[in-house]
C-alpha cells in the first residue's frame, strides 16, 4: 500500500500550506494548590464517580487492606510479589485472602484470570488532583490486565505524588525523555456507562470497584 501512502502525502504536500501560526506552547497548566488541597480535590473527584478513597499511612495501609479484603469477602488477590508493596503483603500472607502472582504470560492462565480472580492490587505512578485520576504504567511486574479484568482494583498511591494537572504530571515526570511505555493509563474511577437512557451504571467492562489507598 505504499502507493496509497505516496499519493496521500503528495496530495497533502501539493497545497500551499496554511502558515504555522502557532503562538508557542503555553499549555503547561498547573495550579499552586498545597499538598493538602491536592489530596482533597483528588479525593472528592474520585468519590464523585463512586471510587473508594482511603487516606492511610505507611504504617497503617497494610492493616486497612486486610480489613477491606475481609469486608469485600474476597477469595483471592492478584498482585506482584516483587514490588515493595507486594513484598510487604506477602510477608503477612496469612492475613490476606489467597495471594496470586501474575507469574506467566496471560496465554498460560487466561481462564483463571477471567473467571477466578476476585481482585487485584497495583501501584501507581501518581495522581492528578484536577480530575481525580490515577497514572499507571503497566509493566512486566504489574501487567495491563491487572487493572482491567478483575472486578475489584486496589491502587496504592503515594500522597506526595499527586500533581495538580495532567500537563504537570507529564512535565514533572518527564515522559517524553523517558520514552512512553507500551501502555500508559489514566484511570478516573470504576468502569461506567450512560448508554442506556442516560442512566449512569457502573461496572460495564472494566472493574466494578476502584479502591484507592493513599499512603
Amino acid at each position: 500500500m505504499n502507493k496509497a501512502r505516496d499519493n496521500i502525502l503528495q496530495r497533502l504536500r501539493a497545497q500551499e500550506r496554511p502558515p504555522g501560526s502557532f503562538p508557542g506552547r503555553d499549555f503547561l497548566s498547573r495550579h499552586d494548590w498545597p499538598a493538602a488541597e491536592c489530596l482533597q480535590r483528588f479525593t472528592e473527584r474520585l468519590q464523585a464517580v463512586r471510587a473508594e478513597v482511603h487516606h492511610s499511612s505507611p504504617e497503617g495501609w497494610l492493616e486497612l487492606l486486610v480489613q477491606l479484603c475481609r469486608d469485600k469477602n474476597l477469595n483471592n488477590l492478584l498482585l506482584s510479589p516483587q514490588t515493595r508493596w507486594g513484598q510487604a503483603i506477602y510477608a503477612q500472607a496469612g492475613r490476606f485472602p489467597k495471594l496470586q502472582a501474575y507469574e506467566h504470560p496471560i496465554e498460560d492462565w487466561k481462564p483463571a484470570m477471567f473467571h477466578g480472580i476476585d481482585a487485584s492490587l497495583t501501584g501507581t505512578l501518581g495522581g492528578i488532583a484536577e480530575t481525580g485520576s490515577l497514572i499507571l504504567w503497566p509493566d512486566a511486574e504489574e501487567p495491563r490486565q491487572m487493572s482491567l479484568v478483575p472486578p475489584v482494583h486496589f491502587a496504592l498511591l503515594e500522597a506526595g505524588r499527586i500533581y495538580s494537572t495532567f500537563a504537570e504530571a507529564i512535565a514533572r515526570q518527564d515522559w517524553v525523555t523517558k520514552g512512553m511505555p507500551t501502555n500508559a493509563l489514566l484511570i478516573s474511577g470504576p468502569s461506567k456507562s450512560a448508554d442506556i437512557a442516560q442512566v449512569l451504571a457502573y461496572g460495564v467492562h472494566g472493574p466494578k470497584e476502584l479502591v484507592v489507598l493513599v499512603v
Binding site: 473527584r45 464517580v49 484536577e130 480530575t131 481525580g132 485520576s133 512512553m180 511505555p181 507500551t182 501502555n183 500508559a184 493509563l185 489514566l186 484511570i187 478516573s188 474511577g189 470504576p190 468502569s191 461506567k192 472494566g206
Partner: peptide, 15 residues
C-alpha cells in the same frame, strides 16, 4: 464530564 474513566495511551505491541 470533567474527565472520562479511562485515557488509554498505546505506543506499541507487547515487548
Amino acid at each position: 464530564q470533567p474527565v472520562t474513566t479511562y485515557f488509554n495511551m498505546i505506543s506499541g505491541p507487547r515487548k
